[in-house]
Design a protein around this nucleic acid. Structure first.
Lengths: 143, 143
DNA sequence: CCGCGATGTGCAATACGATTGCAAGTGCAA
DNA sequence: TTGCACTTGCAATCGTATTGCACATCGCGG
């Protein structure tokens, strides 16, 4: 039993597959992330899971565990609050490409295709080993 | 007396010109920013000014005042700590350049000079209004 | 050169997100 | 089913950012 009717892997399966124990707290956490369209703050996830009597420290550790396992992503928009979002199943967690982060709506887009490479790559080599490139600003819809 | 031998405006002059009172704390704060090649955190500036018996709250307010006056710039690279850097006299206060954060040693460097612009600029326009570019990775010394 | 009022400073306290220690509880492989 | 490492809950703690308030100071006008 590795999947649902819609073809996605169940949260429990995904967590196990990532090498973690599928505890209620982690499953619930991942479900909240999956259910949400937008990235959530720890506080938001926490609030939602408070009904299930899951402690905020546990939520934080669950989120961290999910991040470490590559099931979710952590970032922040400049307001000093971390946001979490699920890593869409199928995309490699290690796949590296620049991200654009709209500081207004919080949406993160991937710049896979973007021709960011050539100029920057040389700079990167001068600096060291660049693992991450983030652009921030306002997306077209938030202008 | 509007300038030094090297042609730059003295910190005191600059502060006055920006419409602020040139207090020792502000002058000292601006000097620290000017002296530093890399952007500094509030804690770093504060530590340096502690010798001069300047309180960290004052440093924070001084930094904020400088930012508001357009003499310095505040940003952060994703580690939940604000960085401050001077606005180079002559360049527009809105001038932006990419920053590199070494996730190992935490040092932030400016990629002023870097030829990051050309390729990226086009991408930025496609996406929306990019206000900030951050690269992360390990610097040469932390390899 | 001096006094005064507006402004800035120092100290301490606070807000708040992030993070951890520890003991009790639980998942899961054998 | 059992054991043990891994998790959780609770509460405490940490660090950055921020503010209140009384005192000190800047710098303008006299």
């Amino acid at each position: 039993m590795a999947g649902n009717t819609d073809g996605t892997i169940s949260a429990q399966e995904a967590i196990r597959a990532a090498g973690l124990r599928a505890t209620p707290a982690r499953v619930a956490t991942l479900l909240v992330l999956r259910r949400s369209a937008a990235p959530l703050t720890h506080a938001e996830v926490s609030a939602e899971l408070a009904e299930a009597a899951i402690d905020k420290a546990t939520v934080f550790r669950s989120l961290s565990a999910l991040v470490d396992a590559g099931l979710s992503r952590r970032f922040e928009v400049g307001d000093h609050v971390y946001r979490f979002e699920q890593v869409v199943p199928g995309e490699a967690a290690t796949h590296r490409h620049p991200h654009f982060l709209c500081t207004v709506c919080g949406v993160v887009s991937c710049l896979d295709h973007a021709g960011v490479s050539s100029g920057i790559r040389r700079v990167c080599e001068t600096i060291g080993d660049v693992t991450d490139i983030v652009l921030r600003g306002r997306c077209r819809e938030c202008q």
